[in-house]
């Protein structure tokens, strides 16, 4: 089991949507509101489904998202 924390940096994210589209478990959705920076940020809709595969992190062109994962005892 992993304890996962998803960090999204709202100052760096440009809202390209790559994370939303590439995530195999559809953890993210596009925000319906535009942020103060003029970006449709990704929002976490199924945080519990994240398996810490880091596909979103590795494909983020703005290094605006990263995953912290810790192994925890069941």
């Amino acid at each position: 089991m992993k304890k996962v924390r998803i960090h999204i940096n709202e100052d760096l994210c440009k809202g390209c949507g790559i994370c939303i589209s590439l995530c195999p478990n559809k953890v993210f959705a596009k925000s319906e509101e535009i942020s103060s920076k003029g970006v449709f940020l990704p929002v976490i809709i199924h945080g519990d489904k994240c398996i810490a595969c880091r596909i979103c992190e590795e494909h983020c062109p703005d290094l605006a998202i990263f995953i912290e994962a810790q192994d925890v005892e069941k």
């Binding site: 760096l12 440009k14 390209c16 949507g17 590795e58 494909h59 983020c60 062109p61 703005d62 290094l63």
Partner: peptide
């Protein structure tokens, strides 16, 4: 200089991250 100078979704940032990794 944390903010990438490229357009949203540009591949250059992915390449940058790969190099740092």
């Amino acid at each position: 200089a944390y903010k990438q100078p490229h357009c949203p979704g540009c591949g250059n940032g992915i390449v940058a991250q790969c190099m740092l990794r």
